[in-house]
Design a binder for these strands. Structure first.
Length: 155
DNA sequence: GCCAACGTTGGC
DNA sequence: GCCAACGTTGGC
């Protein structure tokens, strides 16, 4: 029995566009618009239904982890890549050979408080976490189970 | 296959 | 709004 390397994830969203409160209202949402190959590969190859996700607010006044979500589907083609009116339209992609994949994500809960990026950066135990390393712009990344538990204990 | 130019992310 | 970091594109 081989074990997958990761079953916990972190996904970034700009709260002005789509926040944890938006997800709470909608309950479930296709995570569209990812246009980075590494992030796509994590969704396509790494994620399974039921995996837990930190919902991270980026590019905002208080960047940090705002809530928990869950992977709610296997990966499938991101419909926005086929829509010429979408800002995520990709003319180089086709329905035969779709370039971009996504998963559905469902709401689990908000954290009692936002665990800020600043706070995470100040935890020596998290020094190796991808999120806090300089210059990391990945919007979908794996989280060690150990780091996951450590972060939740900060709540 | 190299790498300069360009675009995007995201903290600040 | 600035700009560092980094990914992508395309000329050669």
């Amino acid at each position: 029995m081989s074990e997958r390397p990761y079953s916990h994830w972190l996904m970034k969203s700009e709260p002005d566009t789509f926040s944890i409160d938006d997800l709470r209202q909608r309950k479930r949402e296709p995570w569209d618009g990812v246009r980075n190959y590494q992030a796509r590969n994590f969704m396509r190859d790494g994620m399974r239904k039921g995996d837990k996700v930190f919902f991270y607010h980026s590019n905002c006044a208080e960047p940090g982890i705002a809530g928990i979500a869950e992977v709610a589907s296997e990966a499938y083609p991101d419909p926005s890549q086929f829509d010429p009116k979408s800002k995520y339209f990709d003319s180089a992609s086709s329905r035969d050979k779709p370039r971009w994949m996504l998963v559905d994500v469902k709401y689990v809960r908000k954290l009692k408080r936002v665990i800020t990026l600043d706070e995470l950066k100040n935890q020596p135990a998290l020094a190796d976490m991808a999120l806090v390393r300089k210059g990391n712009r990945l919007s979908v990344m794996p989280v060690d189970a150990q780091d996951w538990n450590f972060i939740l204990a900060l709540e």
